[in-house]
Each structure stands twice: as structure tokens, then as C-alpha cells.
């Protein structure tokens, strides 16, 4: 039944051309980097309000132009490469983080599909798809690509000839080994229920109102995935890689200017990706039938983004050994039990 649904959708849409995909890629790059920059502003504001401060106020109305000021600063700052560092690796490490974050976004549905109007020269009539590359194993690709993104911190830490950097790199490996199993296992139970790895199928599975959302069927998987997602994006309870109070700035200690900024564009893009996955897999995704379907998913994504900032304001962070303990001794058995129960229920 699902295959007929998928075919139906495929035949319904206009032809996807290479030009359309290139335009889509440019849109994703531009918009997500802009949102990532705006995300830093939102993060500073939300954290400030939660700590009874005002946050950035002086550049522009309510400090809105702070992003521009930060951007100018990052772009014009001197790009320092330490003397004993492995220069080539040091230079490409931030690019790995940023690039993998955006590659992961290539198989995630971002923004609705549309056709460029005919009156625009050159590009008129080109159909721009919702997903840049509609793999039928989208979820696995995104998770795999985000895992590859950890090479950025790892190589950055090891190439910079700095003890803090080495500790940051070691923590990257520790963190990766901890959460990766939980991410995979927690999302396996919803995959079993839907019977597909494609985001479109996930979305179509939950189209019968709020009660059909996956979160009601798989609450444990939802919580586990959120926890693993926080670890995956280095958000606060698990920001071991660059925790200022412990390892000066971890893997980013020696970085400055745009290379440092690229790590953060990557981190914010990853936050958006995790938010999108969580909204599509567990919170019903977008409603493709109605006009405001895209608005609902934007709200869901915004909620998850806000949750990450909220948690950062509220909770302290854990030690690396506590993270390992949590992931391997608590979350992984929970995920396995969840899968078992799901399988038994599906069989009966």
C-alpha cells in the first residue's frame, strides 16, 4: 500500500531537473546559513531573558543587526594558524563540519516545492523540489552524514598542537561512541512501524490528525531520540567538546575568524536538521494537503530549536564518563526494550 502511495506522489509532481536541484541547493545554503546566523541572535536573546538580562540591544532595533556586526567581525578577523599545527588539516577541519551539516540537509524536506514563474528569464518554469535529493533511505543518510560531521572537531582537535584541542578531540570520539548507538536504536522502532526509511512515508503515516502522531505510539523512542539528538549537536547537557569551564574551548581553542564561525554554522545547521527530523518522525511533520502545512512544521521546528536553548539555560552539563554511563547503561537497554515491545505488538 505504501509503495502505491509513493508512486502516486512521484507521478503527481513535475519533472525534477538538475537545474532545479542546483537552485534548491543554493536556497538551502543561503537560507539555512542565514537562519544559523539568526539562531545565534535568538540564542543570546532567549538565554538573556531566562537569566533576567536583556541580551544584545545596541546594534539596530532590539539588537537585530547584531548578526551583521558579528558577521563583519568574523569575516575581517585575522585567520590565525598556530605555528606547530598541521596546517592543511587545521584549515579544512571547519569546512568538514559545515559541509557535512549542509549535505545532511540535502535529503531532508526543507521548504515547500514550487515552480519558478515563467516570466523570469533563464530560470522560468523550473520545478524546485522540496527535498534536494529524495533518497528512499533519507533518515539513515542524514544520520550517517551527521556522524561524518564529527570529523571536523576530531581533526581540528588533533591538528592544532594544543592540549585542550587534543582533549576536545578525545571527547569527540567518546561522545560519538556514546550517542550513536542510541540514535540508531531509538529511531528504529518508528521505522519498524512505518516500514520505510523515507521522510515522505513518515509524513504520510501521521496525516490523520494529532492523535496519529508517532509520539503517542513511541514516547520512549521520542525521549531517547531527543537525548541522543542533544548529544549529536553538542548542546548543553552534553556539550563536552568545547565546555569553557573544563577545556578552554576544546577543539576550537586555536581557531579564530571565519574558520571558527564555520564550526558554529555547522552546529546550528545540525540543530535545525535534528529539529526537522524530530518534527517529521515524531510530531506529524508537514500537512501536505492543507495550505498551512508548512507553517505547522515551521512551528514544530521552532519549538525544538527553542527547547535546545531552554535546556541550555536550565540544566548543568554532564561529565564524559556520565554521558557514556547514561548512553550505554540506561538509554541503550531502554531502546532495546522499546524495540522488543514494538516488535511483539506488531507481531500480535
Amino acid at each position: 500500500m505504501e509503495t502505491t502511495l509513493a508512486q502516486h506522489i512521484v507521478t503527481d509532481l513535475p519533472q525534477v531537473t538538475a537545474l532545479g536541484i542546483i537552485i534548491k541547493a543554493i536556497i538551502i545554503l543561503a537560507v539555512i546559513s542565514a537562519i544559523a546566523g539568526f539562531g545565534t541572535y535568538i540564542e543570546r536573546k532567549v538565554l538573556a531573558f531566562m537569566q533576567r538580562r536583556l541580551g544584545p540591544m545596541h546594534v539596530g532595533p532590539f539588537g537585530l543587526l547584531q548578526i551583521a556586526a558579528d558577521g563583519i567581525k568574523l569575516f575581517t578577523k585575522e585567520d590565525i594558524i598556530p605555528q606547530n599545527a598541521n596546517k592543511f588539516i587545521f584549515m579544512i577541519a571547519p569546512i568538514i563540519t559545515a559541509a557535512t551539516a549542509f549535505i545532511a540537509l540535502s535529503s531532508v524536506p526543507v521548504f515547500p516545492d514550487f515552480t519558478i514563474p515563467e516570466f523570469i528569464p533563464l530560470l522560468g518554469g523550473v520545478f524546485v523540489p522540496s527535498i534536494a535529493s529524495d533518497l528512499n533511505i533519507g533518515i539513515l543518510f542524514v544520520l550517517g552524514m551527521m556522524a561524518a560531521g564529527l570529523y571536523g572537531p576530531l581533526l581540528a582537535g588533533m591538528s592544532q598542537a594544543n592540549k585542550w584541542g587534543i582533549i576536545g578531540a578525545a571527547r569527540t570520539a567518546v561522545q560519538f561512541l556514546s550517542y550513536e548507538v542510541v540514535t540508531g536504536l531509538s529511531i528504529l522502532a518508528p521505522i519498524m512501524l512505518v516500514g520505510s526509511l523515507s521522510f515522505v512515508d513518515f509524513n504520510n503515516y501521521q496525516q490523520e490528525g494529532v492523535l496519529s502522531w508517532m509520539i503517542w505510539q513511541q514516547p520512549v523512542a521520542f525521549v531517547l531520540f531527543l537525548i541522543a539528538g542533544f548529544a549529536e549537536t553538542n548542546r548543553t547537557p552534553f556539550d563536552l567538546l568545547e565546555h569553557e569551564a573544563e577545556v578552554v574551548s576544546g577543539y576550537a581553542t586555536e581557531y579564530s575568524g571565519m574558520r571558527w564561525g564555520m564550526f558554529f554554522i555547522g552546529e546550528y545547521a545540525n540543530m535545525i536538521t535534528i529539529s526537522i527530523i524530530a518534527s517529521i518522525v515524531f510530531l506529524g511533520g508537514y500537512d501536505s494537503a492543507s495550505m498551512f502545512g508548512w507553517l505547522t512544521i515551521m512551528l514544530k521546528i521552532a519549538f525544538f530549536f527553542f527547547l535546545m536553548l531552554w535546556v541550555r539555560a536550565a540544566w548543568p552539563h554532564v561529565r564524559p564518563d556520565q554521558l557514556m554511563w547514561l548512553c550505554w547503561k540506561v538509554l541503550m537497554p531502554l531502546a532495546l526494550v522499546n524495540i522488543l515491545i514494538t516488535a511483539i505488538v506488531m507481531m500480535v
Partner: peptide, 26 residues
């Protein structure tokens, strides 16, 4: 217990935004 922490910061945010209970001195 974790949600108590979440609520505390949320309360502060609401106080800041609604009541203007800000401690910043410009």
C-alpha cells in the same frame, strides 16, 4: 526534577518579557 529546572527559567523569561523584570543596568 529536571522539569522543575525548566520551569524556573521559563518563569524568569515570562517575568522578564511580561513584567519587565530585568536586572540589566544599561
Amino acid at each position: 526534577e529536571l522539569f522543575v529546572g525548566l520551569w524556573v527559567v521559563m518563569r524568569e523569561m515570562i517575568n522578564t518579557l511580561v513584567k519587565g523584570d530585568v536586572h540589566t543596568v544599561k
